[in-house]
Design a protein around this nucleic acid. Sequence first.
DNA 1: GGTCGGGGCGCG
DNA 2: AAAGCGCGCCCCGACC
Length: 573
Amino acid sequence: MPGAPPAGLLCELGPDGRALGTPAPVRDLAEAIAKYERSASRTVRWVWSSAAEHYPGLLSAGIRIGRCHDVALAEGLLLGREGRSSEPASLDAAWARLQGAPVPAGPARPEGRSAGGQDPLWADGPGAAAADAETTLGALIAVHADQLARIAADQYPARFALLVAAESAGGLAAAEMTFAGMPWRADVHDGLLAEMLGPRPPAAVAGARAAVPRRLAELAAEVCAALGVRSVNLDSPAQLTRALATAGVRVPSTRFSVLREIDHPAIAPLLEYKELSRLHAAHGWTWLDTWVRQGRFRPDYVVGGVVSGRWASRGGGALQIPKVLRRAVVADPGWALVVADAAQLEPRVLAALAGDHAFAQAAAEGDLYQALAGAFGGDRAKAKVALLSAMYGGAGGEAGQLLAVLRRRFPAASGYVEAAARAGEEGRVVRSVLGRTCPPPSAAWRAATEDPGDPEAGRDPGAGRASRARGRFTRNFVVQASAADWALVLLAAVRRRLAELPVSQAGRWHPHAPHLVFFQHDEILVHCPEAMAPSVAATVAEAAAEAGRAVFGDTPVRFPMTTAVVGCYADAK
DNA sequence: GGTCGGGGCGCG
DNA sequence: AAAGCGCGCCCCGACC
């Protein structure tokens, strides 16, 4: 019925996922959910097909939920562990697999907001009869029970269960962050653009290209004059390379790092042009018009969108916001931003992962690189290069020597990443600390690297390169993915603890309570009333300690957060 | 008219 | 000797 609140079907489940009693129809599903959330006598964990699909609607109705089991996210993790990450992870797909039926086509990688699709819990749309709701609920219960069994069958079931819980909490946090939005001052953004690019050019008339901002036109003219050419499209690497060649400058590419080394009058304006045109194209006035509404930037986050478990985003380049634009991220009047990022997260994660005693001691307090500097002649910069090379697989320049030092002084830590690299080179998979699994090698990779039957035939010349490239990937995966595990547990802990602060109300999305507004790999932003900022900062610190214990157990390694309470994101560091 | 891979660069 | 890890999005240019 148009205008009626969505009805639905609820069913309580036992610890093993079996239905307790019969499904109960409710007239107003949102209200029924809120009522469960408010009930003090028990903690509810909602089982649903996906938060990305269902939660935005609940939030719009003013309802916040505490915990869930997100079937799609869980399925993604399980498929990954089973070496089937290319298969679709939706409830429909999982149900089809469980029944041995043809699996509906769908995106293999997780998606954010779904464009449509059936709503298994409150199926009241056209064509969704009550019978369909029952069928869908049955599928949901069966798939969930199957997932619980598959989780329990993991080599480390408790850790994998934590991963599924944290991923599910991430799904909730992502929807809440989109709902709340990141405070964004369009006037400040516009002012920054005008300062750097010149005033906003008039909108393009139909059919014509938009006018180029004044500063970009000036810089392009300077470059042309210095190169002695009439005109060149600086946005075309091919054209630019040719124009540089006519001026006697031969470059292998037009990358910033290549051009920077060249002594020619065209280079300075060219580098400035590249920097500003990038800002204009990616985060200029068009971006502002497209993505900022009523003082908020609301990107879609894609939980688990990166193989390592990091989030991706869709639209607005939410995870690539240029640092200069942080000036536009300003707390509402009377509110503050608590900006917290994990200090030197990845090397600390490696220390905890490897159980390298000497390394872990260095990661116990303070500046990790400084603590390791002693092993590198007291040079902190060398310690940092050595660590980054170990985690990324680089060995250029003096990194090779520094790696040798690292290997001698911290054998367990370097051994950990070396073993991961070997596994990757040999085509095996590796896992994060909580059990997120990297994708298996592609068929093309296997074909390129397999041993030829005839020893005289020799290997494909690209085989070594492909093998080493995968080694670098798995070497980095164990660290990056374990860091993502920690960050996800941190996010879940912050989210839960914020909801326990006095101002919050169970079951309600409270617009005046502190809320997460941004999460970028190892950094979080909380928007909160000014007076609450100190308790929010303390909450984040407690959550970080909790995440360390939950993910790594008993370790001397600490995971300190650098936390700032500011009115503007740009002032955080 | 559209798609798609590459070059390039923003973030971690 | 040469090369480092993971993304999203812009523009270009080849191609259908």
